[in-house]
Write a protein that binds this DNA or RNA. Structure first.
Lengths: 145, 145
DNA sequence: TTAAATTTTGAGACTCATTTGCATAAAACT
DNA sequence: AGTTTTATGCAAATGAGTCTCAAAATTTAA
């Protein structure tokens, strides 16, 4: 936690930006949330704790956290962008169920190697990547029709 | 072409839906377009040929083509969903440049195997998947600042 | 430490892709 | 042909995300 705050602070300073109260709150809640959350969910999460921050500020802070390497836009579901924080660098694959919306996370180390090879070949500098598969989860496959 | 039409027709019939004129036009243009297109671009493409179809109908037809296995929602760029048709099954990876928006497509057979292994392990039935990486393309890396 | 300058915030207006309601049109059925 | 059903187009509605701008917080200058 302290660690993330320091990273964010340093990042902000390097851009001549300030670690303000709302930004601190957002960072804290982002790291308290271990799901794939939407801005709206984060907004609610913050509001429940009576430490109000406007939606606009959250929207404005997301790219800062992403640039600071602390947050990732992980997937899009039902027309909403979803985010997840990044501790270290556990990259993963998401299986998203078309029917119940469940998100299964899978670590995938092999992937990184393949990607890096490709990036080298095409001289592309990867900032972030996402691998998502959609289909039916175990449970939903059983429910016929 | 005839092939795709047949697949679409069969799909529609199986759902008690009809292969109408607008649906035929949309299918034809989807397969004439070899890019990652937006609904709006498809709309324009159709309009240029004087065979008008409303945006609403295009929006309504996209999920049908997807369900029929002929279309794929390939990526999202600048707040717009982009689609691409599916011939056979060339799945691929997209490198999307953050700066110039260029999309580099890469075939990735190895990936499929890994994914299938994982799907089996988690009992997940994959309908489609996407692997997208964002960063800087060769050219944009040179432009410093 | 007060005053001026700068940055950030919150609230709500705005944008724009996508969805929806409804009246009309086309198609299938009788 | 007339009736029922489904599809279409238009225009209005929706809703996530962005932007504006006045007020608030923070920094800098004196």
């Amino acid at each position: 936690m302290e660690n993330e705050m320091k990273i964010f602070k340093d990042f902000l300073v390097s851009k001549s930006l300030k670690l303000t109260r709302p930004r601190k709150i957002i960072l804290r809640e982002v790291f308290q949330n271990h799901d794939h959350f939407t801005v709206d969910e984060l907004f609610e999460q913050i509001r429940e704790k009576h430490s109000n921050v406007s939606r606009a500020t959250i929207y404005r802070t997301m790219p800062l956290l992403i640039d600071a390497g602390l947050l990732k836009q992980s997937l899009r579901c039902e027309a909403k962008d979803r985010y997840e924080h990044i501790y270290g660098h556990e990259k993963h694959l998401h299986f998203i169920c078309d029917r119940c919306g469940k998100i299964i996370e899978i670590e995938l180390k092999q992937l990184e190697n393949i990607l890096n090879d490709m990036a080298k070949e095409y001289d592309f500098k990867i900032r972030e990547y996402n691998l998502g598969a959609r289909g039916l989860c175990k449970e939903c496959q059983k429910k016929t029709e």
